[in-house]
Design a protein around this nucleic acid. Structure first.
Lengths: 282, 282
DNA sequence: CAAAGCCATTAGTAACACTAATGGCTGAAT
DNA sequence: ATTCAGCCATTAGTGTTACTAATGGCTTTG
């Protein structure tokens, strides 16, 4: 997104034309003239330097380039359409819904959830897993645990912690060798360069594996696939048990982390929140 | 998409302002003036009838409505950016993108990925994790592993298997007691009723925990949280090692499973596909 | 208290996004 | 073979939009 994007109307016209394979029909659908559609598509083609449609006597055929462009444009338009519409909140059932990052589900909740259930008999749980913050799931859940930066979450959300960025490896499988592949998590402001700077060391290689959540990075480390930059919160038990070790004992404060928010009007949600905060504290 | 969408530039300005929480910084980033940003945000707020930001003396805070809007707008912008970037003359890097169900990432790929990397030195990996099939990630990935039913995936996709629906528990933590909580995975056509019918047994209780992917069900079982209905493909190693046991030795054919598709024009993707099919076979 | 930070508003205008009209090309129908 | 229909491309015109520079208001900081 370094340069400006074409106007949204160009994309809309492209998507409609691709569906109808006919500028005139697309124009009818969008309430424009055929001329406008023709000009927008030509502008888009000029901008991208490719032909998006072949013009035939009775309409269009889409080119390979046009076919490539279509899924993302279609999805983006749908997303912006949904974003512009109001969401319906589904009726809340007696079931406690927890929208949670898959990483937290795997490493924090899965080992401990029996304690919560034992302390609150009769409560049933529904987990809604997310890789990235998911507003739809959050809007229908009673509790949300999301990954992100503090300034992007509500002031009522509490960060789960302490949580720092650490480099971990499995000493049994990787050994003390520092030649193991580097594993980096994308989608955060942290990376191996920053860790190395904080550790006062120099990286002699680039990461080999990129993942999009700290939980998978941690799993790969445990499986001996390499040295992973991940969250100390997630890795806490494995570090305490010695199954994982810190590389260089260096850790970084991480602006992104896991934030917990609960619907204070739902008793079970409040209980869950209190319980989880206590679990992490101890 | 019944009515026209706001201009794309409004969404861009909104996203930048939400990131910076400062119109002036957003303006600098987008190469516009603060005035333009201010007007665009106001126009967007007027259009939606909600306040997206609270204005403070030293910048902004984002409202709940703004927070709701942000992820979809961010994702759509990223999509359109990626779609547009495809037509820039950027050389494709030697990074193999794998869009994969989190369950397969955790249970199948994480323990084995070193074998692939060892056999193909120089290949770097980027994992794009999904809970549900994600067309965007699939469209930008070289390999896709998706959960679903055969009739919903392309004819070229191969099912990973054999894979049946099994009920598993951790004998060490749960013991032989059949009073442990039931864990059920939603989003498939299978459930505890069907399993019981196939096993010729009767359920005397309802599930306590619902999860939305087989991988988390399996994790909960291993952690001793109960008896989980999950995929035999995912559970294979834990069953072979005895860490998990089958309840009643009953298993069901499952119409939903994990399907693998690779871009045959990408050498590394073909290699990955061949490797994974071989791994699962052995 | 003065200065800095930062948003809101106004007036002005270049650029854009469309329309109506016209023309060119191909395929279908006779 | 000829005519007609379908449908895209292009042009000229113009109303609207999207921006800028300038200014003002309010709060916070030093």
């Amino acid at each position: 997104m370094a340069r400006s994007l074409p106007p949204l109307n160009w994309f809309r016209s492209f998507e409609a034309a691709a569906r109808h394979l006919n500028f005139t029909a697309a124009a009818d659908e969008l309430g424009l003239t055929q001329s406008a559609i023709s000009q927008q598509i030509r502008s888009l083609e000029t901008r991208f330097g490719v032909r998006l449609f072949e013009r035939k006597a009775r309409g269009l055929t889409i080119t390979d380039d046009g076919r490539k462009l279509l899924p993302q444009v279609g999805a983006a338009l749908e997303m912006l359409g949904a974003a512009s519409a109001k969401f319906d909140t589904g009726p809340t059932e007696s079931l406690l819904s927890v929208a949670t990052s898959v990483s937290v589900a795997q490493w924090i909740l899965a080992p401990r959830i029996n304690c919560f259930l034992a302390a609150h008999p009769g409560v049933r749980l529904r987990f809604l897993s997310t890789v990235w913050p998911d507003e739809f799931k959050a809007s229908i859940a009673d509790v949300e645990i999301r990954f992100g930066a503090e300034k992007q979450v509500g002031y009522k959300a509490l960060r789960l912690g302490p949580d720092r960025l650490v480099a971990v490896y499995n000493p049994e499988l990787v050994g003390e060798s520092s030649r193991a592949p580097l594993i980096e998590t994308v989608g955060t402001s942290m990376n191996w360069q920053k860790w190395a700077a904080a550790a006062g060391t120099v990286l002699d290689r680039s990461p080999v594996i990129y993942v999009d959540n700290f939980g998978l990075a941690l799993e790969l480390a445990i499986q001996g696939q390499g040295i992973a930059l991940t969250s100390s919160l997630l890795a806490a038990e494995k570090l305490a048990s010695g199954e994982l070790k810190l590389l260089e004992d260096a850790s970084l404060s991480n602006p992104e982390g896991y934030f917990l928010a609960a619907d204070e009007n739902v008793e079970a949600a409040k209980n869950f929140k209190d319980w989880l905060l206590e679990e992490i504290r101890s």
